[in-house]
Simulated scan of single mutants.
Amino acid sequence: MTTPLVTSVSRDAEHRFSKRAVPEIVLLAGLGVEGDAHAGVTVQHRSRVAADPTQPNLRQVHLIQSELFDELAPQGFDVEPGGLGENVLTRGVDLLALPTGAVLRLGADAIVEITGLRNPCGQINRYRSGLLKAVLTTDDLGAAVRKAGVMGIVLTGGTVRTGDPIEVTLPALPHRPLERV
């Protein structure tokens, strides 16, 4: 079993699809990633701001498991850290299997509560043609399977660096499965 860890961190002050990988990011409680366009108490994603700018920001931090990139590579998709717009790239944690309300300690101090699944959109195909179909599939019953990561809110701020350990704490039972946010 792989020890859960942060494999890369990224941010971008502009509303672009991909983010730039950096040595470290600073998470701010209740806001998100310092210097990132999606940081804020209320929604920052353009389509959500257009619908209702007063909604709480449940998408302060975007996390993807690097195992997704391993899965995509044999399909011909070369995805680099930050390429899918994630702030934190992980290894050794099945993020998609976590329940709503799971808590991740990233490094020594930062704590993020998982709020739901990222809903991949057509912008992914502008990044890599055909990639949307690889990260938004269906299960045997026809239900959507979203593989483009999870979203969270910052409960406790702190600095997060590549190589930092990740500790997972599950919420009390019964667990609620992740839904798109």
Rank of each mutant, 00 (worst) to 15 (best):
Glu24Thr: 07
Val9Gln: 08
Gly40Ser: 00
Ala37Ile: 01
Val49Arg: 11
Glu14Cys: 11
Ala50Pro: 12
Gly40Gln: 00
Arg48Pro: 05
Glu71Trp: 06
His38Phe: 02
Val43Asp: 10
Pro4Arg: 04
Ile64Trp: 05
Gly30Ile: 05
Arg48His: 11
Val33Tyr: 14
Asp52Tyr: 06
Val43Leu: 07
Ser18Pro: 12
Arg16Ser: 15
Asp12Glu: 15
Ala29Arg: 10
Leu27Glu: 01
Ser10Arg: 06
Ser66Lys: 07
Leu63Glu: 12
Pro56Cys: 03
Asp52His: 11
Gln60Glu: 00
Phe69Ser: 04
Thr42Met: 02
Phe69Lys: 03
Pro23Trp: 12
His62Lys: 05
Arg16Tyr: 14
Pro23Ser: 10
Asp52Cys: 11
His45Ile: 10
Asp12Trp: 13
Val6Lys: 01
Arg11Pro: 07
Pro56Met: 04
Gly32Glu: 09
Leu28Ser: 09
Leu68Trp: 02
Leu5Pro: 00
Arg20Pro: 07
Val26Leu: 04
Val43Asn: 10
Gln65Asp: 14
Ala13Asp: 14
His45Asn: 09
Ala29Pro: 07
Phe17Met: 09
Arg48Gly: 07
His45Trp: 11
Pro56Phe: 03
Ser8His: 08
Ala13Arg: 15
Leu58Tyr: 02
His45Tyr: 13
His15Trp: 15
Val41Phe: 01
Arg48Tyr: 10
His45Gly: 09
Val33Gly: 14
Gly40Lys: 00
Val26Tyr: 05
Thr42Phe: 02
Asp36Ser: 06
Glu67Asn: 10
Leu31Trp: 14
Pro4Trp: 01
Val6Tyr: 00
Gln65Arg: 15
Pro53Thr: 01
Val26Asn: 03
Gly32Trp: 07
Arg11Met: 12
Glu34Arg: 15
Ile64Tyr: 05
Leu68Thr: 02
Leu63Arg: 13
Phe17His: 06
His38Thr: 01
Leu68Arg: 01
Glu34Asp: 15
Gly30Thr: 07
Arg59Gln: 04
Arg16Met: 14
Glu24Asp: 12
Val61Ala: 10
Arg48Glu: 11
Ile25Asp: 05
Ala39Met: 05
Thr54Glu: 11
His15Thr: 15
Ser10Leu: 08
Ala39Thr: 06
Asp70Pro: 05
Ser18Met: 09
Glu14Ile: 07
Ala29Phe: 11
Leu31Cys: 13
Val49Phe: 09
Leu72Ser: 12
Leu28Tyr: 04
Leu68His: 01
Ser10Gly: 08
Gln65Tyr: 13
Arg11Cys: 12
Leu58Cys: 03
Thr42Asn: 05
Glu24Asn: 10
Asp70Asn: 05
Gln60Lys: 00
Ser66Cys: 07
Val26His: 03
Pro4His: 02
Ser66Gly: 08
Ala21Asn: 04
Gly32Thr: 08
Asn57Ser: 01
Asp12Lys: 15
Ala50Thr: 14
Glu34Trp: 15
Gln60Val: 00
Gln44Arg: 14
Pro56Ala: 05
Leu27Phe: 03
Gly35Val: 12
Leu72Phe: 13
Ala13Pro: 15
Ala13Trp: 13
Arg59Met: 02
Ser18Gln: 12
Thr7Leu: 08
His38Pro: 00
